[in-house]
């Protein structure tokens, strides 16, 4: 493929009950990109990530990952294909230590886990100090770092993040965004859902605005930042 897409969702239709929440959503994530998805509460942003990752089975449409059709595969299969996902909440194992959480991230790997844990702990120095503490004892920001670290344990070819800055104090929000950029710089394409539209768009190559389970707008991160409609609706301008 010339368009160097790593991940592509085509016309996804999905829902929890008879009602469709996604009514044909399409997105693309290319190599080396950060792509953001913004939109009002209940737009279907989390539902989109769940449908891509196989937690919810799409009713129509396709999910293509590294040129392979993975539509409808279960999450444990999709992990093995090389995608990682950090859910919006409950994204750590609270009674396990930081180190054990990371270790679980590499459950499907036979070896090299120790080295990888150490590598990740150097990337997240705050966690290094607390590596043997239970995650339930950590702050919200540190827990989010554990969740992202856990997802990075397999060196994924695509990383899905659902509202990584939700519920964090402003200074921590910046730290999380820096980490996202850093992870991306090491070659991991990231698809991220965010409420914090201004911040995420400013570090994204491209962004999508979702509304009522449909694509509303899309464009380069900078373009969306300057788009009147987006400004009015999401940037409080």
């Amino acid at each position: 493929m010339k368009d160097n897409n790593v991940l592509e969702a085509k016309n996804l239709v999905a829902g929890y009950t008879d009602l469709d929440i996604l009514n044909g959503v399409s997105i693309e994530l290319k190599e080396d990109e950060i792509v953001s998805i913004i939109g009002p509460n209940g737009a279907g942003k989390s539902t989109l990530l769940k449908s891509i990752f196989g937690i919810l089975k799409p009713r129509k449409g396709k999910v293509i990952f590294k040129n392979e059709d993975i539509t409808g595969l279960k999450p444990n299969k999709i992990v093995k294909k090389g995608m990682s996902y950090v859910p919006q909440d409950k994204n750590t194992f609270p009674s396990l230590s930081v180190r054990e959480n990371l270790e679980m991230g590499a459950f499907i790997k036979e070896d090299g886990t120790k080295e990888k844990i150490n590598e990740i702990l150097t990337k997240f120095p705050d966690l290094k100090e607390k590596e043997n503490q239970k995650v339930s004892k950590l702050s919200g920001g540190q827990r989010q770092m554990v969740a992202m670290g856990r997802a990075m344990m397999l060196d994924p070819d695509a990383l899905l993040l659902d509202e990584p800055s939700a519920g964090l104090a402003p200074n921590l929000v910046d730290e999380v965004f820096q980490k996202i950029e850093k992870i991306n710089k090491t070659g991991t394409p990231i698809l991220v859902v965010e409420q914090n539209a201004r911040k995420i768009l400013s570090i994204s190559e491209r962004g999508y605005v979702l509304e009522m389970g449909e694509n509303r707008l899309e464009g380069k991160g900078k373009e969306l930042l300057n788009n009147e409609e987006v400004e009015k609706l999401y940037l409080g301008g």
């Binding site: 937690i55 999450p75 992990v79 093995k80 994204n91």
Partner: peptide
């Protein structure tokens, strides 16, 4: 690893699946 995965499963089954733990 098995024992830690048992504790992980008892913490959060959905996350265990998402993580790739062989439930």
């Amino acid at each position: 690893k098995i024992g830690k995965a048992m504790r992980a499963l008892s913490d959060n089954k959905n996350l265990a699946r998402i993580t790739g733990i062989n439930v």
